[in-house]
Nucleic acid binder design. Structure first.
Lengths: 230, 230
DNA sequence: ACGGATCCATACCTGGATCCTG
DNA sequence: CAGGATCCAGGTATGGATCCGT
């Protein structure tokens, strides 16, 4: 499938993303010379990859942001008929053994969430190709949000670093949570255990709760610029 | 391509290997429902993989031997018209940073070479499919050979662990040598540098010199059993 | 002749996320 | 309805070795 060149600045990125809004995924795929012939259970990550191509994101499996020159991450987020997310959003995987040596500021989670272009996808149509792209939303965490994310992260990372990964479940954290991230339940990764031991646990990732992404998408954004005073 | 079930014991493995001797690679591939359409420069590893399938080896990229139940490694070795190896044989790749903590007995090199089924391939015919499989040779290092391999390994591993990987070249070692093992000269791996530093170097592997594999194949083996007294 | 450079197949890992059962 | 389980694509690493210029 064809991939567009990277956008040269933030404005160019936003213009491209707004140009996509209203289009169906099938139309975008066709414009790139591809097709969306697989159905949902078999195409969990296709939407994100399609948007990457359409917007000129690079990166792949590198640790750099999707738009390295701009320091911006791209996230597609499935929404219902009212434009609201119903599911959690994956942030990044967790290298449990290294978490003890990290701090929030240098963490992968903070870097991933520092500057994000959210692109809502209306997931009511069952067929992938019929789903409609919504208005993009370029976001940075507010001071309040960043504080809350940081507190969650420090609690969760602290538990893992202390060897409590097996006592930790997805109930913890207000905005950020920890859940399995693996091909299946048999996958294994190393993690700190009690008293300086190492144990083997299901690989985990950080996720944002749907309540939090709903809050983000309801903040003032491009879709409401006409109401801003001035 | 079809793969045979694993051999249940050493005898079954040897019988299968002897049954292949005299056959061409093309015949073996055809019997497995495959084909050998690629030519040498494009098929450096095809012969080894073909023999794995034909003999029922498992393993792939696991650290276990090719025949885990038997503890036996499979090595194909290209030979000339006199049945003698003309090239070195790859043993295993080197994890340079970990070599300092290893000893010969627990090393990957010793485990790979502890028990090997050598299968010579007459490489005079240019076309892959026309090459003829020779008599297999099941080998364990003699006390003399094991001592020499160990001395080589300890010298080479010691130099690498001491941070001298960039001063080390393929001239060192009587039987075992160290040479690049990478997709190309731009590949990089971490290695110990001088004075507890870490540097980036071309990935290396251990190889057996052709003089050594010639010695192995000339030892008494299945092909000469009729001359053994008794 | 051989030391350094290289080539293919395949398993594994990571990043993209959504599925789905109790 | 949300926590735990899972799925695909694509890149990387590993294992199989031989190529080839000097």
């Amino acid at each position: 499938m064809h991939r567009r060149p990277p956008p040269r600045n933030e404005r160019e990125l936003l213009l491209r993303a707004e140009a996509l809004s209203g289009a169906t995924l099938g139309e975008v795929a066709q414009a790139l010379g591809g097709a969306l012939d697989q159905e949902p259970r078999r195409a969990k990550g296709r939407i994100g990859q399609l948007l990457e191509h359409a917007l000129g994101a690079t990166g792949g499996s590198s640790p750099t942001p999707d738009f390295p020159e701009l320091g911006i991450e791209l996230k597609s987020v499935p929404v219902d008929s009212r434009g609201q997310p119903r599911q959690s959003t994956f942030v990044c995987s967790i290298a449990a053994l290294e978490l003890a040596y990290e701090e929030w500021f240098s963490s992968r989670a903070r870097r991933k969430l520092a500057h994000v272009l959210w692109v809502p996808i209306d997931c009511i149509p069952t067929r992938l190709a019929d789903r409609v792209i919504g208005r993009p939303h370029l976001w940075r965490p507010s001071p309040h949000q960043e504080r809350a994310l940081r507190e969650d992260w420090e609690e969760l990372a602290g538990l893992i670093a202390a060897g409590a990964i097996d006592q930790l479940d997805a109930h913890r954290g207000r905005y950020l949570q920890v859940r399995p991230k693996a091909a299946d339940g048999r996958a294994r990764a190393c993690a700190p255990g009690p008293e300086d031991t190492t144990l083997s646990a299901v690989p985990r990732g950080f996720y944002l709760r749907a309540t939090f992404t709903r809050e983000i998408l309801c903040q003032d954004g491009p879709g409401r610029r006409e109401h801003v005073p001035g």
